[in-house]
Design a protein around this nucleic acid. Sequence first.
DNA 1: GAGTGGTCTAGACCACCCC
DNA 2: GGGTGGTCTAGACCACTCC
Lengths: 240, 240
Amino acid sequence: MIKKNSPIPIYYQLEEHIKELIENGELKPGDSLPAERVYAEEYKISRMTVRQALTQLVNEGYLHRIQGKGTFVAERKIMQPLQGLTSFTEDMKARGFKPGSQLIRFEVIPATIQIADQLSIQEYAPVYEIKRIRMADDVPMALETNYISANLIKGLTENIVNQSIYSYIEGHLGLKIETASQIIESSIANQIEANSLSIKKGSPIMLIQRNTYLENGTPVEFVKSVYRADRYQFMIQMKR
Amino acid sequence: MIKKNSPIPIYYQLEEHIKELIENGELKPGDSLPAERVYAEEYKISRMTVRQALTQLVNEGYLHRIQGKGTFVAERKIMQPLQGLTSFTEDMKARGFKPGSQLIRFEVIPATIQIADQLSIQEYAPVYEIKRIRMADDVPMALETNYISANLIKGLTENIVNQSIYSYIEGHLGLKIETASQIIESSIANQIEANSLSIKKGSPIMLIQRNTYLENGTPVEFVKSVYRADRYQFMIQMKR
DNA sequence: GAGTGGTCTAGACCACCCC
DNA sequence: GGGTGGTCTAGACCACTCC
């Protein structure tokens, strides 16, 4: 089960193994796991290595530990990875909808003061402005506008935008998106927003602004979205 | 600086020490930290202990590490502790408002099917229903209704509610609140909500439903809140 | 090659829970 | 008292970055 001369770290192999048992249902919520010393003995590895795997799973919300008693499978999985840092496409799939997208604007513009501030770049520096209507099961769900520094993310095309911007940034450019912050507000639709979303003027909408950053803190992207409140709820799980 | 024969773990002392340097501004965003081996040498502790402290700070978003280069202070602090799991009082203080509260209902009622489901208890089991208008700088900000199982949290009084329910649960009952999930929606105020919040009927509002759980997954509390959208934004930071 | 973080070992003692 | 997780040590070798 655990390969010792693998380029994949042992703690990671053990982590994935236990995660699989939980997702298979072989380990059920409330079940206790073998003791750390048992794992160490069974796989002939150090207890510290076992702890490294278990600690990660505790942080991800799969397990919880009680000193003197043992390690147990958590009742609920908390803090799904990528929670909120998913793309619209991933988010909709997770909700059981068929995601769709209609590009209505793709241009390079000089940054306004507001955009420059959000992206930590100079005013008038070139940024991509990408406006899309996002669909779920072919019904408009959100109106989304992305601003991305053209000096940081070079070579963006309509084609890439229709595939996946994140894959391009992470795959082709080798940059790592690490953190994001979001601001969520309630409002009511004006005429333009109402038309785009096929709702009535004055209907409730949810405004979400997202800023994403690389691991060193460089802003990558700044997104303003308008969601239909009758079809969208924002969900979040957290640990204390 | 680091006390070795203290009941406080060494890794935790180091963690707090570094956190303080960052919050004091002695370590600025982008600064590199001393190498792990330097800390180990300086405090005569094991490098693994140093790593335990640093790993925690990386997870909390204070630091980031780059293999072969070093450990650096993050540009932004991500994932504030307790984010969203704070009480209204803590939340308002963090935003720079003076929190206030007006109790308008405090009763024990039999659980409806909906409440029983959220709290994983039997229908008709006794639950506290606590309704409050929450103020920020003496202006109504939210209308909040809590449901708490009376069999789990015994001895709640109006007095405790006016102090802090969380302190009572954690301090007096010795229970540990570990996780929470929230659902955020946009809507528009009906007449009752409008009156309570001193806004007009039809104004945008934000509905937040929160479920909190103990470390073993037992539901503790179920809260429905109605926030004024003109004065409240929900903010969240996350790591990938 | 020198310096950094990443992984790993084989122990040790402590704090806590339960019988 | 026996079993559990929590903390800690003093090393080791590897992978990566930079010069």
